[in-house]
């Protein structure tokens, strides 16, 4: 474990709870893409199937349980409890256009042709594009609530920190996982224009609005 990965995991945890609290407190999921949340739930479920078979540490197992539970809870709040506030008219990204190609790629490019490893690879590839429905929804509505932009900033920062973690581990531990690094770069690049808007607008107290 290194500081980049620890801060990255905490940033990821913060993002998930910022969103969960926003929906719970405001009793509304306006401006939030339910499709992205479904994809994140799929990412965690397919990635953490080794929860019971591969014990790494208490921290690792605890975080896996928290990530799965909180993301499933978010999907539950959006599609069941506060369904009336779900903005399905703007959350129209065709996620099958993400899941199918990512599933095919996971079969073709992976470290090990075993069920668990293919599912892990699918999860890594899917996570890199899972935010697209959310970014697409913001581009359609033209703006995002400030709390939603904080969520996105924490979520985007987590994988950027993981890139630093992989540089650290490469030099100090000789650890290198090409699949995770490439997917992590794609994932972080997708946030770039949001990061620009966030730093130039939200940090100065303005609302995040996309140029029409």
């Amino acid at each position: 474990m290194n500081i980049f990965r620890l801060v990255g995991d905490l940033s990821h945890l913060l993002a998930i709870f910022v969103l969960l609290l926003k929906i719970w407190k405001s009793r509304s999921c306006a401006g939030v893409s339910g499709k992205s949340q479904i994809l994140f739930a799929l990412v965690f479920i397919t990635r953490y199937l080794d929860l019971f078979t591969n014990f790494i540490s208490v921290y690792n197992s605890l975080m896996k349980v928290i990530f799965i539970a909180s993301t499933v809870a978010t999907v539950y709040l959006m599609y069941i409890k506060f369904k009336a506030t779900y903005d399905s008219n703007h959350d129209t990204f065709r996620i099958e256009f993400l899941v199918v190609p990512v599933g095919g790629l996971a079969f073709l490019v992976n470290h090990d042709f075993t069920p668990l490893e293919i599912l892990w690879t699918f999860s890594i590839y899917l996570e890199s594009v899972a935010i697209l429905p959310q970014l697409f929804m913001i581009s359609k509505t033209g703006e995002a609530e400030t709390i939603t932009s904080h969520y996105l900033f924490a979520l985007g920062s987590y994988r950027a920190l993981y890139l630093l973690n992989w540089i650290y581990r490469y030099y100090f531990e000789g650890y290198f996982d090409l699949i995770a690094v490439v997917a992590g770069c794609v994932q972080t690049i997708l946030y770039c224009d949001f990061f620009y808007l966030y730093i130039t607008k939200v940090m100065w107290g303005k609302k995040l609005s996309l140029p029409a």
Partner: peptide
């Protein structure tokens, strides 16, 4: 790739 097929990251 991680030793003995285990992924130690979240």
């Amino acid at each position: 790739h991680i030793a003995d097929g285990k992924h130690d990251e979240l």
